[in-house]
Design a protein around this nucleic acid. Structure first.
Lengths: 229, 229
DNA sequence: CGACTCGTTGAGACAACTCAATGGGTGTGG
DNA sequence: CCACACCCATTGAGTTGTCTCAACGAGTCG
């Protein structure tokens, strides 16, 4: 409802966990709150990592272009997530492009600024390490999934992960908030577009999900988890 | 040649990069050098992360058991690599089991010790962050590979990665030092055992690799890189 | 009312998987 | 030192799940 959110409501998310008030204050003062329209890009794959973002509201899609020029969706990020953290902390070019999928607000630090703050405040460093560690772990899990699960199980896993990352509770189930097309799911699972469509169609007939245009509502997470296993 | 390597030769690898001498000294003093026989395990999947390892010599295989009980190889680690870093820094159970594939020596810190050192020495923290960041990045790359490359390309990529991680220069090519079986390659690529055997057989006929029992020598990395692309 | 994007469905092809049988190394124990 | 068991690898034949290609349907936007 507030167009300009109150300060206090911003001092949450990955970088702020377990900070004492003073440090949180300093961190927040250094940040700029930027607004992005749906479709606006936060940064491009290959860019030098000049800024770090933490999503306050809305959601962001991370995509990557392979050498053959095909685009693939890596993941979505929602409120509290750090976008571009690995690249900024490691001073590597961004390995992906970040795009807002809906009107999105993000706290924003310049790379030099955040690196400096980290040097001065070990607690911030610790949060950074935790976040990057989480990301590494998620990727290991996803990698393992790719090799030892079948297509249906992978689609189920991705749906559940999306629910966790950008899910929004609705009357009868959890809706995936970001406009997630079949193509996105296809790219995140390594399953072809058409097969995803068929699998989701089947699940809708069984009442596990409800489908719409660029819209997926998960009705029965339990059953999905079973399929994912 | 030295059975007991000299101190100086140990103060290298992931955690020691860019440390001033004093800090390196402290870090090294806190470490224990442990020897592992081929087949010995450094830690088990699911264990509490009580120790951090940095490989000094030899090599280590990281494997993971999925819910169905099948074992899959995640990756190999060679000299200078930090084993178990994500788990230790994040205080998560180890997500994989680490086994020495040949006689291996590793520097070894207790979790509380290394976390304490990191708190006291930001430079060590920074190295930790860099290492975890690298790992995250590698995983993202591998994930992308899985979704947008075909089987041959994936096998080629994994071979090249193995060369980089545990390769050893020989007279006519680079040998993959760890006993890497077809099964290992199969699990790292998500390609069936038999298909891997056929692909490698084909490459041997073309002179790209030379094969032996649990042994792969890469003769023509350039051509492999081409196939991987 | 087009033009566009997103989604569904069907039919056919083919690459990779499964299953089964065989062949060599390696190491161990009598 | 031989014989046996075990592990790793190869190869063939048959099957199938997934991809490809093509056509159509439906919602959305200007």
């Amino acid at each position: 409802m507030d167009q300009v959110p109150r300060r206090a409501s911003l001092a949450h998310g990955a970088l702020f966990t377990n900070l004492d008030e003073g440090t949180a204050e300093i961190l927040l003062d250094a940040a700029t709150l930027r607004q992005f329209a749906a479709g606006a890009t936060l940064f491009h794959q290959g860019d030098a990592p000049s800024q770090l973002f933490q999503v306050s509201s809305g959601s962001v899609r991370l995509t990557r272009v392979n050498p053959e020029g095909e685009q693939t969706t890596l993941r979505f990020m929602g409120a509290g997530d750090l976008v571009g953290c690995v690249a900024v902390f490691r001073r590597f070019p961004f390995p992906a492009t970040a795009t807002a999928t809906e009107p999105t607000a993000a706290l924003c630090w310049s790379a030099v600024q955040i690196l400096d703050l980290m040097r001065r405040h070990p607690a911030i460093s610790a949060n950074a390490l935790d976040t990057v560690g989480d990301r590494a772990r998620e990727m290991v899990d996803r990698l393992a999934e790719m090799t030892d699960k079948g297509t249906e199980a992978r689609v189920a896993s991705v749906l559940l992960r999306l629910v966790g990352q950008v899910g929004r509770n609705g009357p009868k189930g959890v809706e995936i908030a970001s406009p997630a097309t079949r193509k996105d799911v296809s790219e995140m699972t390594g399953v072809s577009y058409f097969t995803v469509s068929r699998i989701l169609g089947g699940w809708q007939r069984q009442g596990l999900v409800r489908l719409g245009r660029a819209r997926i509502v998960v009705l029965d997470p339990g059953r999905l988890a079973q399929i994912a296993a």
